[in-house]
Design a protein around this nucleic acid. Structure first.
Length: 951
RNA sequence: GCGGGGGUUGCCAAGAGGUCAAAGGCACAGGGCUUAGGACCCUGUCACGCAGGUGUUCGCGGGUUCGACUCCCGUCCCCCGCACCA
């Protein structure tokens, strides 16, 4: 063994040994299998600390399961399909200064190498190699024979086959959908292309068609149900509106709204203009109720929002009420209006607890809102909206919708209104403006004739929910998140015009969208081994896939059709049958609402139920010194860097030991440095133990040996349980840190002969986390790889509660003595311990028994106690002790009584004397020979009385 | 806004009705070992306390209970996702 721990030497040595001996290659055999997968990384940069977390969790689980005797397949591949790599190659080719900075500084790529990456192909090749190197350097136990990239021709064949099936199942349909669009670039705008407003989401407004003769005045609203309570419309008198041709209708909208309409799937044509002022005073008919309402002026109407025309529902919208009220006192004769607006009847349509007829009016009064310009008006709006949305129910005025909850009404009503041509949908950003990187203001574009995966299909959804219900979800808390997201998932556009990927087999102009090609590729890993061993791509026909993955057709026919030898076909089929389904997929929490969902959707669509995934585990991210990592802005820590600076084992230990499940790991240099120290200490201790010639395992167990072995068994059980639950932090706490402390106590107490035995288990317990150093230590004490050594199992027979109680008594006694020393600041010449007398133990026992029966009755207790002659003698002391017992009755435990404290302490007298550096006397309170201060009266079971004398 | 997760002692982080002033780590302090030490080993770090004790804490405000960090209600704050983007 090396004298000094050197991560670099140990790690490269074992990585080579593992690779040369194919230690992690997995092929079917007679043992139980475990198929573990992790989402492959996208190749637009180097792997970073976030990947490291997810991958390392997976690797630790893979290693653990392997040691448990399972045949573990842990494969890895690379994701390259989609648009970002193409975009990146262009930016690199143009030497975009921003990108240049990010990739040289954050991703650590040398300038000359970066300059070469001017095509998508080169980028894929480069980062694939980088990623693979990084994964090897951190010691992942991957079977690399199955490696592939999603742009490989064979993979394309596999994706085409999959999409053919989805199409046959009628899960792929055509439709239109809204996207963020840059009119200058003539392209959809992605998040990283946005200069301003990246948090903006797409809101679907209802456009309600109020009629004025042949003209339609559409009003945009997020609350279409309030159409039943409209009293008037609002129009901005200072805006010139457009009378436009929209499809077969004539609409009156603001110029800005007209502009937006041109990007939707409507046929539009500019007509004449009309001043807002000229519209005021006219009346329109409510498309739903048919009633006539008047158009009134309002300066708050923003022509850039919605259609530029607003419907007014003063009963439920504070702004509308305030604006109307404000007009009561205004002279509107310039609009030819001279009627008394107080005659306008406010219409209530929502019943909500806590409010009467007109919630908006009440809220305005409640918050003392002065007028429409009062900042509190916004607050009132939110208040009313919140209460109405959550608790509101529609009133009889809404006809067939009566009784429906406000929170449930929008979709139902909108569907009906659209069917009757009373409304349309109009998209608007939630925040404005949204600006593209080119400086142009973005719009919402309706993409037509788009291919969709019909995730909204109720049968499909039901199958996914069924699958989810049968799966293990780790941690269990996020199951409900999965359920919610499945419920929420709508149809998803599944094809694009740009980027890398597989063409839709029936419509070659389209590329399959990159999340959609990453759903059932775990099955492809089984095939990839053969593809990598030189299989001919043109042999991979749909019939071949059908047979391998779905068992359709006859192997003889497939062999004939494809030219693949029958034997190979049988073997691949057999491999697939052995490895599938996926036993565990672990992933970051950001993928819950997309990839992991699609993973389930496509599995239930393509495969029969026995091949559905068994389990999903989800984990959080990694932050750097409390700062969020960012691939484009920094800070960023690459896997490569972390390993180069700290070593693979330290990186793994830190990242797995510092958080669990959904929590984020905070990567802090200070913590990493100390982790390195811990590992070094472990290495040194192991080295000393192996080299210690004085260890004699054949001697009988001493008390401290029994204690150590007992603790070890408990640490083993805890660690095992934690690993079964994928709790790496809990596992490491037990397997590494707590066991380390146990060992310290063991050695401090003079334990030695079980050290090697403990070490053997210890090394195996942490091998999944720090495999290299463990391999190194193991090779100096046992044969074979620790990576394949049997996981320790807890031996019940070695659990020794007596030994543990005895050690605890000793520690507690030392603690008590130290406390007294601290408080009195004295340095005694002698310490005397008195263990509890028999009568106190007897009382203790009775108290425990009584408390177990239920509430302890003090009278009953005293009666029983005093009937015992030995106790009855202690007329004064017994009631005092009884009081004390009664106080703590809820937390009494009888186990301490199983210990003979006098003999335990007497046996450890020598240790106590050396530990404290003072002579110690030990008496039982039953046989007092010396008790100058009557301290012995304080003795209790498990807690000796202490007397310190200074002479 | 919607959905999910979370706020614990200087920091990270366990705990989920009594065994809790609350594991473990870090940081800091004292002591030991040592030529020396950033290595290692002990001890301490809410407050007060000349005998092992007492008091006050687990985002904030209420409630249930003999007893609440743990259960219930309200409230504030933080993080993640909300789609055609991997």
């Amino acid at each position: 063994m090396l004298q000094e721990y050197s991560a670099r030497d140990i790690e490269t040595k074992w990585q080579m040994v593992w690779a040369e001996n194919s230690v992690f290659h997995a092929d079917p055999d007679s043992s139980q299998k475990f198929f573990l997968t992790i989402p492959y990384p996208y190749l637009n940069g180097n792997l970073h600390a976030g990947h490291t977390r997810t991958f390392t969790i997976g690797d630790a689980v893979a290693r653990y399961k392997r040691m448990k005797g399972l045949n573990v397949l842990f494969p890895m591949a690379f994701h390259a399909t989609g648009t970002p790599i193409v975009g990146l190659s262009e930016l690199i080719a143009n030497k975009d200064p921003l990108i240049w900075d990010v990739y040289t500084k954050l991703h650590g790529i040398p300038e000359d190498e970066l300059a070469e990456l001017n095509t998508p192909e080169k980028i894929v090749l480069y980062f694939r190699q980088q990623a693979k190197n990084a994964m090897q350097r951190i010691g992942y136990s991957i079977d690399w024979r199955r490696e592939f990239t999603t742009t490989d021709p064979a993979y394309n064949k596999f994706i085409e086959w999959q999409y053919g099936i989805l199409r046959d199942l009628n899960y792929i349909i055509k439709g239109s959908h809204p996207v963020r669009w840059c009119p200058h670039d003539m392209n959809p705008v992605e998040d990283h292309d946005i200069l301003k407003g990246e948090d903006a989401t797409l809101l679907d407004f209802a456009l309600l068609k109020f009629k004025m003769g042949d003209w339609i005045l559409p009003c945009a609203t997020l609350r279409p149900e309030t159409v039943f309570g409209v009293t008037n419309l609002w129009i901005n008198p200072r805006v010139n509106y457009v009378i436009a041709r929209v499809n077969e209708e004539t609409w009156v909208v603001s110029p800005q709204a007209y502009e937006k309409l041109t990007f939707t799937d409507r046929q539009v044509a500019w007509g004449t203009e009309i001043s807002g002022k000229d519209l005021i005073g006219k009346s329109v008919s409510n498309p739903v109720t048919g009633s006539q309402v008047i158009i009134l002026p309002a300066n708050f109407v923003d022509p850039d929002n919605g259609s530029g025309i607003v419907m007014s529902v003063p009963a439920h919208a504070p702004y509308d009420y305030l604006a109307l009220k404000d007009l009561y006192y205004e002279d509107l004769s310039e609009y030819g209006l001279n009627q008394d607006l107080r005659q306008i009847k406010i219409i209530s349509l929502i019943e909500v607890p806590g409010y009467g007829e007109f919630p908006a009016i009440e809220a305005v009064k409640e918050l003392n809102v002065e007028n429409q310009n009062d900042t509190k008006a916004e607050e009132a709006t939110k208040l009313v909206y919140k209460r109405e949305f959550h608790n509101g129910v529609l009133k009889p005025i809404t006809g067939k919708y009566t009784g429906i909850a406000v929170s449930k009404i929008k979709d139902v009503l909108l569907k009906d209104l659209i069917n009757e041509n009373m409304a349309e949908i109009f998209y608007e950003f939630s925040e404005m403006p949204v600006i593209c990187r080119c400086g142009t203001r973005c719009v919402i574009m309706m993409v037509k004739d788009q291919w969709f995966l019909e995730y909204s299909d109720p049968t499909w959804k039901a199958s996914v929910l069924d699958c989810l219900a049968k799966m293990r979800i780790i941690p269990e808390e996020i199951r409900v998140e999965f359920e919610n997201k499945i419920d929420w998932l709508k149809d998803k556009a599944c094809a694009r015009r740009k980027g890398l990927g597989t063409h839709l087999p029936w419509d070659k102009e389209w590329l399959i969208e990159s999340l959609g090609d990453s759903t059932i590729y775990m099955a492809y890993y089984i095939l990839a081994k053969y593809v990598n061993a030189d299989m001919r791509i043109e042999n991979l026909t749909p019939e071949f896939f059908d047979y391998i993955f779905l068992g359709k057709g006859k192997p003889e026919n497939i062999a004939e059709l494809t030219g693949i030898p029958l034997e190979i076909i049988h073997q691949i089929k057999h491999d697939f049958a052995y490895w599938y389904p996926v036993d565990l997929r672990t992933s970051g929490k950001d993928l819950v609402a997309n990839h992991l969902l699609f993973f389930l959707y496509h599995h239930v669509a393509i495969f029969p139920e026995p091949l559905w995934p068994e389990a999903i585990a989800v984990n959080g991210f990694v932050s750097l010194e409390s700062q969020k990592m960012s691939k484009s802005r920094g800070p960023l820590l690459t896997l490569e860097q972390a390993v180069a600076e700290n070593g693979a084992d330290v990186t793994r230990l830190y990242i797995l030991g510092n958080a669990e499940y959904m929590q984020d790991v905070d990567w802090r240099n200070e913590g990493v440095v100390s982790t390195r120290g811990q590992l070094e200490r472990f290495y040194n201790l192991a080295k000393d133990i192996i080299a210690d010639p004085s260890i004699n395992e054949n001697l009988d167990y001493s008390q401290i040996d029994r204690w150590m072995l007992s603790r070890l068994q408990k640490r083993i059980s805890e660690t095992t349980e934690a690993m079964e639950n994928i709790q790496t932090r809990r596992a490491l706490q037990n397997a590494f840190y707590l066991l380390f402390n146990d060992l310290r106590w063991y050695q401090r107490r003079g334990g030695k002969n079980q050290l090697r035995r403990v070490l053997s288990s210890w090394v195996r317990l942490i091998a999944p986390f720090t495999p290299h150093v463990c391999e190194e230590i193991w090779s100096n004490m046992e044969k074979g790889y620790v990576s394949l050594a049997p996981w320790p199992s807890a031996d019940e027979a070695l659990i020794d509660e007596q030994a543990e109680l005895a050690e605890r008594l000793l520690q507690d006694t030392l603690d008590d003595i130290e406390e007294i020393l601290k408080v009195t600041k004295s340095s005694p010449k002698k310490i005397t311990l008195y263990t509890a007398p028999a009568w106190k133990k007897q009382m203790f026992r009775i108290a425990v028994e009584l408390s177990q029966e239920g509430k302890m009755d003090m009278g009953k207790f005293m009666k029983i106690v005093m009937s015992q002659p030995e106790i009855a003698k202690k007329k004064k002391d017994a009631p005092k002790y009884a009081q004390k017992l009664a106080k703590s009755v809820h937390s009494l435990s009888a186990e301490i009584l199983t210990l003979d404290d006098f003999s335990v302490l007497s046996q450890e007298k020598a240790y106590l004397q050396t530990a404290l550096g003072v002579p110690i006397d030990i008496f039982s309170a039953d046989e007092l020979t010396d008790d100058p201060m009557s301290k012995s009266k304080q003795a209790e079971p498990g807690r000796p009385a202490i007397y310190m004398s200074n002479d």
